[in-house]
């Protein structure tokens, strides 16, 4: 047992403290650690890439599907081109240009019966005046995303400014500002959106404003609560005692430290904004025809659901998938930013 030599029994003392402080786990910054956790969540990563692709598509599609193109139709040939079912050119049932009308037994090739010239096909079909659904949906997605993202950015600005100001000032200012939020949030969003929609008319800008007016409440509340807790932190107190201006403290210390919460809130606001755009369209306060949005496409085609379901279901599916991606990414980010989730 005792294999040691006598020279082992000499005092060597403590090692230097650097060696002591060695930690086997790799050290990661907050953002690196969040990124590591986000990557573990496959659904969130897929959603993120999907959204990046969708946004890129929405921007780039301006070149090859201009809005005019999607709105244009040949009034002489409506009878030929109207309500053509989706045709992939491949013999895939339900995607081959044939449709089975309710009550019929056999499906008919609508392209043939309406006399569409050979070789011409519409991958997502056409609407009731012969416009390509694929083009309409491309423009609709663009408009819906534009409305939702701009509205969310406005929410972000108002909400963060309001929340930081209220939380930082505290006292009666905070109290009053909280009451205002309380009053506004006890009024249903639908009403605020409708009123503003009525007041501002059918332009895209007015829709954005109407939606933005309701979405900032949640952001303001969260930011205010975080400001209240952050402003007691040592580094904020230190910055204050060094005479930094409140504005600088907010920009340099407060907002970066609540960035995680803000990002998650943004991810959750976008699908709500997309949904409200569709609601506005459904109550006749949406974009002005012939401009298309996902919401207007859905509500315009809704009456024909029984006969031409694809005209409703295609924009609906796109709306759902985009919303879903935002929610999944938001969920993933929430877990990634929450250190408590790291034990899993």
């Amino acid at each position: 047992m005792m294999t040691a030599n006598t020279e082992d029994f000499v005092i060597v003392g403590a090692k230097n403290s650097d060696a002591n402080e060695h930690i086997s786990k790799p050290a990661l910054s907050f953002w690196q650690d969040a990124w590591r956790r986000l990557k573990l969540n496959k659904l969130a990563v897929i959603s993120m890439w999907f959204l990046i692709l969708i946004l890129a598509f929405a921007v780039i599609s301006n070149i090859f599907v201009p809005q005019k193109d999607a709105n244009a139709f040949n009034s002489d040939k409506v009878g030929v081109y109207k309500n053509l079912p989706p045709n992939s050119g491949l013999p895939i049932p339900g995607w081959d240009g044939k449709i089975k009308a309710p009550g019929d037994n056999a499906s008919t090739d609508v392209y043939e019966s309406q006399g569409v010239p050979d070789g011409e096909k519409f991958i997502l079909g056409t609407d009731n005046i012969g416009r390509s659904v694929a083009k309409r949906v491309t423009v609709g997605l663009r408009i819906s995303l534009l409305v939702a993202i701009v509205a969310t950015l406005i929410d972000l600005l108002i909400g963060v400014a309001y929340g930081v100001f209220a939380g930082w000032k505290g006292g009666w200012i905070d109290n009053t500002m909280q009451r205002i939020i309380e009053i506004l949030s006890s009024i249903p969003n639908l009403i605020i959106v409708t009123m503003l929609g009525l007041l501002l008319g059918n332009g895209i800008l007015s829709i954005i404003l109407a939606i933005a007016m309701t979405g900032w409440l949640g952001m303001a509340r969260q930011v205010r609560n975080m400001t209240l807790s952050l402003k007691e932190r040592d580094y904020v107190l230190a910055a204050q005692s060094l005479g930094e201006s409140s504005f600088k403290i907010a920009i340099k210390h407060l907002i970066p430290n609540m960035a995680g919460t803000i990002i998650v809130q943004v991810m959750m606001t976008v699908p709500t904004a997309i949904m409200f755009e569709a609601v506005l369209s459904a109550i006749n306060l949406g974009v002005k025809p012939p401009t298309a949005s996902l919401g207007s496409l859905i509500s315009d085609a809704q009456a024909m659901l029984q006969f031409y379901p694809y005209q409703v279901l295609i924009p609906s599916a796109i709306l759902v998938v985009v919303s879903l991606a935002f929610v999944l990414l938001g969920d993933g980010l929430r877990d990634a930013f929450d250190p408590r989730a790291s034990e899993d």
């Binding site: 294999t3 040691a4 020279e7 082992d8 029994f9 000499v10 005092i11 060597v12 003392g13 403590a14 090692k15 060696a19 002591n20």
Partner: peptide, 15 residues
């Protein structure tokens, strides 16, 4: 404890 021990002996880090 050897690394923090001012009285550490040579053998402490071996056995």
């Amino acid at each position: 404890f050897a690394a923090r021990n001012v009285y550490a002996l040579g053998i402490d880090s071996k056995q």
